[in-house]
């Protein structure tokens, strides 16, 4: 279902309400007609991230000519201890085939620290000259001891070590954004885990990686309102909340982004509306308001330009 892949993610109702005349009585939405070939209900393409295999920027060691060498897209990884497991630290790791032959190759992944990488090995076919990248996820439990560790990638003796620092949540550099990596919850979320609430406080305000964990999508099509909450580490004076909604060339905010919402803050245990946005068509809206001391923020979503879902890439809160 080629070009409909991402469209499906955004219009699930239309995708399953197909039935053929051979089964003329089966017009219900959960009963796909003969030509709907995928099991649309439980595992349908509604929420599949793109395959992780892709060529990306990478650094590897300069040696290993005529060999398959491990590569990674970053020189250092930071993992927050006790961070939301729905939004692990991600690093693109892989292999580059520097030989002139097409090969199948295995890479082992070892970590000497207080966490387990999402995959112990990576295996793939590698055409000559091809570089493979796949996502490796790292989560550290709350009790993980902060410190410097190393991730070791090894392809038949060719190795690459990537330093990993485990840091406490309170020690991360947040640039003044009080919502960064703080606990996020939502009224509903697409079940697959590809649109977690924590994706909207992960520090990535670009729309890259939508459907790959970088943003929140509610789980109730055409049901409004939805709520998206972030709990701060304590009371702070707030005067500005920035909201990034889905906005790419293919899925512009004017067609798919959030249109109407209220910005609320929790002060003294009570939610109060501090700003309202209506008729938005932009990817970023900065709401400024009279300073108020609050320990949580809420986005009360009222409508999107596509009418179906709330899609938030990032929420930031400032003094």
């Amino acid at each position: 279902m080629k070009s409909r892949r991402l469209t499906l993610a955004l219009a699930a109702v239309a995708a399953v309400a197909v039935a053929g005349p051979v089964v003329a009585t089966a017009q219900s939405g959960e009963d796909p007609g003969p030509a709907v070939r995928t099991p649309a209900q439980a595992v349908g393409p509604i929420d599949q991230p793109e395959p992780a295999v892709k060529i990306g920027p990478a650094h590897g060691r300069g040696n290993g000519k005529q060999k398959v060498v491990p590569v990674a897209d970053t020189e250092r990884i930071q993992v927050v201890a006790g961070g939301d497991p729905g939004c692990p630290a991600a690093v693109q790791v892989g292999m580059r085939n520097q030989t002139k032959k097409d090969v199948y190759s295995d890479m082992t992944v070892e970590f000497d620290g207080p966490l387990t990488p999402s995959r112990p090995m990576l295996s793939s076919y590698l055409p000559a000259g091809y570089e493979l990248g796949a996502k490796l996820l790292l989560t550290a439990p709350q009790q993980a001891t902060p410190g410097d560790y190393s991730l070791k990638l090894d392809v038949a003796g060719e190795d690459l070590t990537v330093p990993v620092s485990v840091v406490a949540l309170d020690d991360i550099e947040n640039g003044g954004n009080l919502a960064l990596r703080r606990p996020a919850t939502a009224s509903s979320t697409v079940l697959s885990g590809n649109y977690p609430a924590c994706g909207a406080v992960d520090g990535d305000s670009t729309s890259d990686g939508w459907a790959g964990g970088n943003g929140w999508n509610d789980g109730t099509s055409r049901v409004w309102p939805d709520t998206f909450d972030v709990t701060l580490d304590g009371p702070h004076q707030l005067s500005r909340v920035d909201l990034y909604t889905l906005d790419t060339e293919r899925y512009p905010a004017a067609k798919y982004g959030l249109r109407d919402w209220d910005v609320q803050v929790r002060a003294g245990g009570q939610w109060q509306t501090v700003a309202q946005v209506r008729g938005n068509v932009a990817g970023l809206v900065s709401s400024r308001f009279t300073p108020v001391t609050a320990d949580a923020i809420r986005i009360l979503t009222l409508g999107s330009n596509s009418g179906d879902y709330s899609r938030i890439i990032e929420v930031e809160a400032y003094e």
């Binding site: 991230p49 395959p51 992780a52 199948y104 999402s118 090995m121 295996s123 796949a134 885990g193």
Partner: peptide, 10 residues
Amino acid sequence: QFRVQCDTLD
């Protein structure tokens, strides 16, 4: 490990 779609051999 089963959350993501299949792509690599492992």
